[in-house]
Write a protein that binds this DNA or RNA. Structure first.
Lengths: 168, 168
DNA sequence: CGATATATGACAATATATTGTCCTATTAAG
DNA sequence: CTTAATAGGACAATATATTGTCATATATCG
């Protein structure tokens, strides 16, 4: 066969390149996961919070859920197990950040709300630390970069959720 | 003042937009972290592995480290604490995936290598599952998408490492 | 009303993950 | 050779995280 001048060394469309890239992507995602928990918790440790508790306060502080969220809804929203969330909420109740009351409309359900103290810690103390953390980590990200990263994370998350719910 | 036609409703360059985007980005990263551990571990659970053990076998199976890696180097490579790694390695030794021997050149150092059984599990059993996992999660990612995502993860990781090592 | 579904608590086992401390062996630097 | 630094073991406390099971109260459906 005659070589018509194709660049036979270009393997960018080969499956092995894709595999290698995927390998690196998931390895870095794994490292990011650990570093997020480590540096995030350190950013709010003076407030007695962790990255996970920060996520919960972030969820509860939204305008849409001013009356609080049920354990089940919160678990679904955060994508964690009910049992994991129970531990988290227990520690946060112990620390006075949240309170849990029975839902008057559905007495099976228990509603988690931020306490006055929790709101103060969140808005006054933690928010400035969190903004500083964002700016440090995303220092050389343009608005466009942030948007693109968010888009890719959402795509990955969607695929993982589909995988989680079952390949049936 | 005369309105010269500027779109005064465009707040895309306002700090609040950037803050809101950063909030979403880190929230999704937090969810991705949990879902990676959950779906990743499920992908290799038939092999008795977890996402973390997969990362270790991935590190040890590289051509560059055929003679194994020390505990310290492995911890640095994976960005986890020595104590965390010790537990992981202990469980993997218990399961026969790795073995640990004293380094003859530096008798303080202990070298972790994959056992024959570990290599078989990794290459024959786990690899196909992992490739399938990659393809499911990155199904609608082009090579370009994967490259960009990897690039953003590396930038985030770099910033987090700088933050971790100290703001001095 | 009676069967069933749902929301949650309570408990257990297991694996990750951090920080911190104390100890010991070994190596490297002076 | 003495002192320093380094590598790691061993242990503890704490917080996340999963799965699985059993029990109970409450809703909802037929």
């Amino acid at each position: 066969m005659i070589d018509l001048g194709e660049d036979v060394t270009d393997r960018s469309t080969e499956p092995s390149v894709r595999l290698e890239l995927a390998n690196r992507l998931f390895f870095r995602l794994y490292q990011c996961a650990n570093m997020l928990h480590k540096t995030g918790s350190r950013a709010v440790e003076a407030e007695g919070l962790t990255t996970q508790q920060w996520a919960i306060l972030g969820a509860l502080s939204r305008q849409e859920v001013q009356r609080g969220m049920s354990i089940g809804d919160l678990a679904k929203y955060l994508m964690v197990s009910r049992q994991n969330l129970a531990g988290l909420i227990g520690r946060m109740e112990r620390d006075g950040h949240v309170s849990i009351v029975t839902d008057s409309r559905d007495r099976r359900s228990r509603i988690v709300t931020m306490t006055k103290s929790g709101r103060r810690v969140w808005h006054i103390q933690a928010q400035p630390k969190i903004r500083a953390y964002y700016e440090e980590v995303l220092a050389d990200f343009s608005i466009n970069d942030v948007t693109h990263t968010l888009h890719y994370l959402l795509k990955i998350l969607g695929a993982m959720q589909r995988l989680d719910r079952g390949p049936d």
